[in-house]
Write a protein that binds this DNA or RNA. Structure first.
Lengths: 209, 209
DNA sequence: TGGCAACACGAGTATTTGCTCATATTATAG
DNA sequence: CTATAATATGAGCAAATACTCGTGTTGCCA
């Protein structure tokens, strides 16, 4: 089988100097991706934008793919921490509290740099999704699952795995689409309210919307 | 402003000979896209696969982009016709009938060539989405809107535009994700049932799931 | 202060690839 | 049968671009 090239850093930065370089590379990658899109982004321009040489870039990233992977893993990690924090703090709060809170948080996260999220989720070839990202999604599923188990008695659907899938997919795609296609919805709390209604009406046994 | 290169055919096929050629190019594009993904697909290989010369390809398609655009427009058109047919035939049927029917149909459409849909929706740069596709989405929204207006008295949410947005996005993303990530769900009617429940619980005033 | 490791440099290479154009072949109309 | 339009060909160009490598510079520690 054709063993894929690695996406982990070739060399770890040890001095402050190089840590700044790596930071600059990440920042530049973000910027170029946002401005030009994935297929117009090239490593020479990223290095130029970062104010470093192309050689330095390849000291820390073995290939172009690893640059994008780093960004995606960073975003995935942020999402895990976000949902983790919310669900930990609100583990004993009912759905009516938790659902709107999470929706608001996810919209806020997507709204920080909408175009970056768009590029990462819509233009990156499937082959570049790393194991770390799958693990991140896995972790989120586990968190949601645990919460749903906790409140099982108040929830209508019975197949918890299926429910987790539907929940996570629905929230993510609606928040994403809203930020990208209907940015005016984001500042409007009616949208968050409506997505909450969608999920609560589905989940709660005796809804009183 | 930088006037973009056209995506419409450079020359229209007039004889049967060339119509076959164009068909072969479309088929080959699909095949290469499915097998290799977007960024590994190149026009020389597409021509080779189609059994024609690279020169012939460029007689009918002005650039690589137009090949992909043709496929995407074809798919968008199919979706419009699908939803249009269903909603026309079932215009006077209640939500409990229409929602499951549409979900089943969309899943079936996505399941014909899942990998192609994945590539088209996840790997194609945003810049290549053509006006025709936006028009197609527009048409679907109008159809759904008309149906919702027809049954307005039985529907709970009041902001119809917002409801159309939420409905179309939710159905599309769930069907897509199911076919790609959880193919075992597709043969299982429980998934369709559950997505129907999600939407019906949200829409219907006095749900009795 | 000398020596080693970490870091930075960037011209150049090797490859890929979108696309052209001059030419050849085939169909059709008069 | 002939003229003209339609169609097909593919070698090769021009540009883009991922990545290397030999060399120079800076920081750290004994």
């Amino acid at each position: 089988m054709p063993n894929k090239p690695p996406t982990t850093p070739r060399k770890l930065p040890r001095q402050d100097r190089s840590r700044i370089t790596v930071e600059a590379i990440i920042e530049a990658t973000t910027h170029i991706l946002v401005e030009e899109g994935y297929d117009k982004a090239n490593t020479n321009r990223i290095a130029e934008r970062a104010g470093i040489s192309i050689g330095s870039l390849y000291q820390y990233f073995p290939n172009k793919e690893s640059l994008v992977t780093a960004l995606m893993e960073q975003h995935a990690q942020e999402m895990v921490e976000l949902v983790g924090m919310k669900l930990e703090r609100l583990f004993d709060s009912p759905l009516e509290i938790v659902i709107p809170e999470i929706i608001t948080a996810i919209i806020a996260a997507h709204a920080i740099n909408p175009r970056l999220h768009q590029v990462l989720s819509e233009e990156i070839p499937y082959s570049e999704r790393s194991p770390k990202m799958q693990q991140a999604n896995e972790r989120i599923s586990i968190l949601i699952r645990a919460y749903l188990e906790r409140w099982r008695d108040y929830i209508h659907p019975q197949n918890i795995d299926l429910t987790v899938f539907i929940l996570s997919r629905t929230v993510d795609s609606l928040c994403h689409a809203a930020v990208i296609e209907q940015p005016h919805l984001v500042s409007d709390s009616q949208f968050e309210q409506e997505v909450s209604n969608l999920l609560l009406a589905y989940l709660i046994k005796n809804p009183a919307i």
